[in-house]
Design a protein around this nucleic acid. Structure first.
Lengths: 322, 322
DNA sequence: TTGAAAGCGCTAACAT
DNA sequence: ATGTTAGCGCTTTCAA
């Protein structure tokens, strides 16, 4: 039923290898023959079987991309950039969502192996050890996680958190709550490290799911902490937090200052507009693809790229209430 | 370098077929042999090559899922449900984003063909004709589009739009703006059809990109239309619209009532909370997977499932200003 | 420029 | 229960 290279060969009176060449190395075949083969192929509705091709060439021209939550705008921005960059290089990107579950993450990497030429691991929840092991089955590039001997793209969120904390301190905040993210998160750890050097008195609240719901459920703790400023794990958490605060009659930034991380578009809408640490997601996506494509054919020393973050001050931060 | 079934066979002193069975039909092989083979395989770091396996079995145990915009919560909700359902059936889902570009959409379907057992096309931008043609290369299930002879999941947005319009009319609105979506969109067309039977005077404004930005840029037209009520293509558009309205000092719902479509979580946050038509995205995702899996092995009459929508009244709609 | 033949890694009858 | 053999659809030497 499915038409193969052999059918085309028979119908056009040439050998299979000629048909093969017509598709994978057209310049090696006589113009006339090529036209004829192409015509017959089109007529028969022939389509090269990419999986079979990959079996011999070892190249699928596909990339896998794994994220913890496809619904998080932070990831979708990265995904879009990665796709665009891959497209430029004649590659396709297949995305999979782990739903924050490390086991699913591992399973997906296995599923991707041999079906793609490499996979991008974004903010993985797996342990470094597991990642290293999986790296032997399929080329990996890791985003926002430091893994020994593996090509890596980092966003300097530690620096950003430092800036955010300084901003809060400058506004007179002395007690600050850090609403942390999932336990496996490198980003979360970086933020905690940055907090340790702050002049302010920082209390850690977490771990929390990295979602609006996570923020919403942290409201009570934040209120109880006595903090006048909050640095949230990400914008989603910050937005959920502000929503909960509004329900309790706590006004932002009058009663409490809130800072998020990521600079997702939702934070720029509504009121108050969110002060946040902007993450270079698009650049990271492009970078990761290039690193991966490079590591696929060139076997050199794995690169570590660190991208800068920046503080975007909007309306959710203000003078500490005294 | 990459360890194959043959290496394992040699190292464990059995034939390749025994090794094959150990992995694909363990019950057919002696317990002792199995343990030994497994041990050797583990030792050598052997991993079955899923692509090669697919070549002989014809089954990859992967599903493709194509959406226009991965960043749209409407799609991510559907994707999550589809993934969960597929997981139940021992399948993996690979997602790809077309960026609203029909040509990319076609390319991606081609890329998926032979690497997955079927693909879910969500709110496609391709023409029916093209979809039908591609359906011959790989099993397809279409969501929110009626394609002849193809398994389909529909969400009854026409009905929902009717309800929304009635709600507006009941509040005294006589002139209503319908902010339409992309031109290839079936949903958009359904809404227009529903609008045609409304008692109110409905003006069509569009096409618009189905994003917050699209809504933002429609503000001027909406204001100029003289409408007192708006039905937007989706929640994202509605949110962008409300943002733009706020900037111009137009208050919702006092000066203008706004209704969206999808019931994304962002619409439930902030103020005013969005009145919207809830779409059964999760059910659609599950349904689509089951239809696809069914059409993969059973060749029956393609089913068309229509899912109900409902109107969720929140704070963005109110009495028409007189 | 084209053909012949081997093989990518695996599975699936069919034998034994 | 295990081995033999053929072959999935394609690419790629090597010869002609």
């Amino acid at each position: 039923m499915t038409v193969t290279i052999r059918d085309v060969a028979r119908a056009s009176g040439v050998h299979v290898s000629t048909v093969s060449r017509t598709f994978s190395a057209p310049h090696l075949v006589n113009a006339e023959t090529r036209t004829r083969v192409l015509a017959v192929a089109d007529d028969l509705g022939y389509r090269p079987n990419r999986a079979a091709r990959a079996l011999t060439t070892g190249k699928t021209h596909n990339l896998g991309l794994i994220v913890a939550d496809i619904a998080n705008p932070f990831f979708s921005s990265l995904i879009k950039a990665a796709q665009a960059q891959a497209r430029l290089r004649d590659y396709h990107v297949f995305v999979a969502d782990t739903d924050e579950d490390p086991q699913v993450e591992e399973e997906l990497i296995q599923a991707f192996a041999k079906q793609v030429d490499g996979v991008l691991l974004c903010s993985p929840r797996l342990t470094n050890k597991t990642i290293e092991r999986l790296g032997e089955e399929v080329p990996l590039v890791v985003v926002n996680r430091r893994v020994k001997g593996m090509p890596t793209v980092l966003m300097d969120v530690g620096r950003g958190a430092g800036l955010a904390l300084e901003h809060l301190v400058a506004l007179g905040h002395r007690r600050i709550a850090l609403v942390t993210g999932p336990s496996g998160s490198w980003t979360s750890k970086e933020m905690q490290t940055a907090a340790a050097t702050s002049e302010a008195d920082v209390v850690f609240l977490g771990p929390n799911p990295p979602t609006a719901l996570g923020g919403l459920s942290a409201v009570t703790d934040v209120l109880a902490s006595g903090a006048t400023g909050v640095l949230a794990y990400n914008d989603l958490v910050a937005i959920g937090l502000m929503e909960g605060l509004a329900e309790r009659g706590t006004e932002v930034p009058r009663d409490l200052s809130v800072i998020g991380v990521d600079d997702i578009v939702t934070g720029r809408l509504g009121s108050p507009r969110l002060t946040t640490i902007a993450m270079p997601t698009a650049a990271a996506g492009r970078m990761a693809v290039d690193l991966l494509l490079h590591s696929v054919d060139a076997e050199g020393a794995p690169g570590v790229t660190t991208l800068e973050t920046s503080l975007v001050v909007r309306e959710s931060t203000g003078e500490a209430r005294r």
